[in-house]
Design a protein around this nucleic acid. Structure first.
Lengths: 228, 228
DNA sequence: CGGTACATCTCGGCA
DNA sequence: TGCCGAGGTGTACCG
């Protein structure tokens, strides 16, 4: 629906949208999206499922203000509520879409991790894989390996190497180096792209940075597949 | 537009949506959203502005497969691309919405910070406010205060206290304790809710944790307003 | 414009 | 179910 409306939300925060023309999308699960003609994919206001959709008759006061319809959408669990006051309906249509077959993805961190585990010598000559998703008390290290000398190497993998990833790896290293069976553990911060600030922080902490070429690694993977 | 379509995205990752009926929203800035009838506010696929929208004539091969139109949306900077192959148009309409007056919010971190600054004794008896958003070389500390003894206290404020917030405060404390005019600086990690892992990490580093009751603080604020 | 921190984040995975 | 990490995150703010 395209309609002139104002919107009030009360829940984790309260917000108000003054009267303007907007797109209202009501999905079959009762959820509601309020979009403006611009911005990105995030609606101005919304209610996520599971939620209940109700319409109300406008009060005399509301009718006097020009409101022809009131929508009330309430979340089933949190009881967050969104109220849409409709001043004028410009366009209205509804359609049966059916269930969606869903999205097929490729190229996420999981794939990068698999490729790096297969091509572990990218870490340096003589490196061997111990295991992927090596569990520690504070979470899994992406890859645990050993260098040519047999010392432990912890690898944190990101698509984009940011300062957060360095902090994460630092916490792992701190913990692992307290374990006499593992220590000394060195760190490698590997990503398709490493931000200068992240690189600086990492190197300052003695963590090696490694930039990965996803296309080349995938090419290697395909080539390997053909070799065997 | 409601249409039977398949969608291919190639950019930071590659993805494919098989043929199904979906809602296509094309905004005036050229951006595109592909929604299914369910899920939350996030589209199945999208292209954020700034981007260019083009239509293409289907090739003979595509026409044979039942494709009547091809949309190509390309990001102006990253050259990410989304291709929509349209098999059947079920509904099509367009509307001029005009610019949106925008959202008015209340109840976010900024408000919490204002309330805590006003009710600074929540940090403990005898605490006094130095200033909000105290600037350091690596960013602003949410609140800088002094305790009853006159020592500096840095407060990091979150709605939800997570491990990241503790890291953030730790970086600030490390820096500020190098400044002889400020040192010694102690830390308080304040949030409406503090995750157990974050609490453990904070207390391990000598950072005090403080759980805030937003409703009570707002109540105090209103009461104060009425008293004076 | 780049970097940082927040978000009614959403979403998926795994304990 | 809850917690935790990743995201094609988006968005505001500040340098």
């Amino acid at each position: 629906m395209i309609a002139k409306c104002s919107v009030d939300y009360a829940g984790r925060l309260t917000s108000h949208l003054p009267e303007a023309t907007r797109l209202l999308m009501l999905k079959s699960d009762g959820s509601l999206l309020v979009h403006s003609d611009g911005g990105s994919y995030k609606p101005l206001n919304w209610m996520s499922p599971p939620c209940v959709f109700e319409t109300e008759e406008p009060t005399d006061e509301q009718r006097e203000a020009g409101i022809v319809d009131v929508w009330k959408v309430t979340h089933k669990k949190t009881s967050d509520q969104i109220v849409v006051s409709i001043f004028e309906v410009i366009h209205d249509s509804q359609h049966e879409l059916g269930i969606d077959p869903g999205l097929q993805k490729d190229g996420v961190e999981a794939h990068l991790q698999k490729l790096l585990a297969e091509q572990i010598d990218l870490l340096g000559d003589g490196h061997t894989l111990v295991r992927r998703e090596y569990m520690t008390a504070i979470g899994p290290v992406d890859i645990l390996a050993k260098d040519a000398a047999g010392s432990s190497v912890a690898v944190e993998l990101k698509r984009r190497g940011d300062i957060d990833g360095v902090e994460q790896l630092t916490r792992y290293l701190e913990l692992m180096n307290r374990d006499p069976l593992l220590a000394p553990v060195t760190g490698i911060f590997a990503a398709q792209e490493i931000k200068p600030q992240a690189r600086t922080l990492a190197e300052d902490r003695g963590i090696r940075c490694l930039v990965l070429d996803y296309d080349a690694m995938r090419g290697m993977d395909i080539a390997d597949g053909r070799l065997f």
